[in-house]
Design a protein around this nucleic acid. Structure first.
Length: 412
RNA sequence: CGGGGCGUGGCGUAACGGCUAACGCACUUGGUUUGGGACCAAGGGACUCCGGGUUCGAAUCCCGGCGCCCCGACCA
């Protein structure tokens, strides 16, 4: 992509109201545009990052047998009434001209349960799991911290269906591993803890995935021995000790919830009377689990964790482009070499953003740091004197010169 | 939803109740520049959030609404 053609632009100034790092850098870098409080447009750069995160999640959900579907965002009022969740404050409701009401999905048990019931009648159909990556709507009383807590946001929600508890437990554990694989691949595994949290109406505990960050909204207590944590909301119930080893020497930290898994058991299957026939032809209630993770919140969290005073430092796996090719000056020789390299990189299927703009070196470097692509290649008169280009990694200080005719041998 | 702060070109800000609402960035045109947010010149762009009120006169004061940010509460 040529940067001169890229929709969206970087900016030096952003409202002083926006105090969170992710809001500052994502807006300044031209990744997102705020439409209203808690509602954002993802511009081309931001959309690329979001899609990459979604694809990583997709791969890991597929790997544990999840099958991707896409459910509606507009949902039947009657189904919400069946589960008693129609009048809940986070629900956004829409009304037609003729006063017919619908709910906007803030979770999808009310769609997925009747759906699963329609297609799975026999024990032979179980277990199975369905997921989607979709926009969720929540009437947050207070949207905050850029894309970390919005009223409309991207969410992966997976639902699993089982004939017995052992099977549910096994899948539940697999999902934990899958979640950590995602956190590993997007570069925040070291800061993410499996966290015991309240189970709501459904079970004793649920598990959250809490990622340490100062903008976090949760307080968690970490057990360094077990590498797990406890959410503040249940620390009293546990008398301040680790639920695994009983250790009382827990470390208090601020964190943000980047995932949540839940054994719903029969909470929704009972409401929708979802039963299966077992080997003996006897009816049993289906057991269910749900597993959520927000790609847009992950994106914001990663920015919060991976930046410096000049801008974002994207991990390779989710960077909008792998290489930022920057030409300095408008000497014909420089332009020609830069164009040539742009074409070669594209031919090699290396994702490259080419800053072909007629801007000063300073502007280009500042923008490059702000956008945060992992690898920068600079071509200028200075480098061409040595038949070279300069290569610099965003997360390192130094740079190296590489001969132009060797560049395609470089490990990108 | 409670508390606090704030609404002025796209963005950041300025303007005592009183001239044609000013400046910087961004944008357009021409020229000079090009290794860390360059320079010169000439331009375009505003019902000062909305509605009402006070006043000879309101961006400025008062009332109401809406919006935005922060803190708190809430958050399967």
């Amino acid at each position: 992509m040529k940067q001169s053609q890229l929709f969206g632009k970087t900016t030096k100034d952003v409202s002083k109201d926006e105090t969170s790092i992710n809001a500052q850098y994502l807006i300044r870098g031209g990744f997102v545009d705020k439409s209203m409080a808690g509602v954002y447009t993802y511009l081309p750069l931001g959309k690329r990052v979001l899609s990459k995160i979604e694809n990583i999640i997709r791969e890991e959900m597929d790997a544990i047998g999840g099958q991707e579907i896409l459910m509606p965002a507009l949902m039947k009022k009657e189904d919400w009434q069946i589960t008693g969740r129609w009048d809940i404050d986070v629900m956004m409701k829409v009304k037609t001209f003729f006063d017919k009401e619908y709910g906007l999905g803030w979770t999808h048990e009310e769609v997925v349960t009747p759906l699963a019931k329609k297609y799975a009648k026999s024990y032979k159909n179980f277990p199975f799991s369905l997921y989607q990556i979709q926009t969720k709507f929540r009437s947050e009383k207070r949207a905050k911290s850029g894309i970390l807590r919005g009223r409309e946001f991207s969410m992966k929600d997976l639902y699993s269906f089982h004939t017995n508890e052992k099977d549910l437990d096994e899948f539940y554990d697999q999902s934990k591993d899958a979640y950590f694989k995602v956190f590993d691949r997007v570069g925040i595994k070291d800061k993410t803890y499996l966290t015991f949290a309240s189970g709501g109406d459904f079970s004793k505990y649920s598990h959250e995935f809490q990622t340490l960050t100062s903008v976090g909204e949760d307080i968690i207590y970490i057990c360094d021995k077990c590498k797990i944590a406890v959410n503040q909301e249940i620390i009293e119930d546990l008398k301040g000790s680790c639920p695994e080893c009983g250790n009382k020497d827990l470390k208090e930290e601020k964190a943000i919830e980047t995932g949540n898994i839940f054994k719903l058991k029969t909470r929704f299957t009972e409401a929708f009377n979802f039963k299966f026939l077992d080997e003996k032809g006897k009816e049993n209630v289906v057991l269910m689990g749900c597993y959520g993770m927000g790609p847009s919140r992950l994106m914001g969290t990663i920015v919060e964790l991976s930046n410096d005073k000049n801008g974002i430092i994207w991990p390779r796996s989710i960077a909008p482009y792998q290489v930022h090719l920057v030409s300095i000056g408008k000497d014909e020789k420089v332009i020609t070499e830069a164009e040539k390299m742009y074409e070669s990189l594209q031919k090699e299927k290396i994702e490259v953003l080419y800053d072909d703009r007629n801007e000063s070196a300073g502007v280009k470097f500042k923008d490059s740091d702000l956008i945060g692509i992992p690898l920068r290649i600079v071509i200028s008169n200075k480098t061409l004197e040595k038949d070279s280009v300069e290569i610099k990694r965003r997360n390192e200080d130094g740079f190296e010169l590489i001969k132009i005719d060797k560049i395609m041998n470089f490990e990108f």
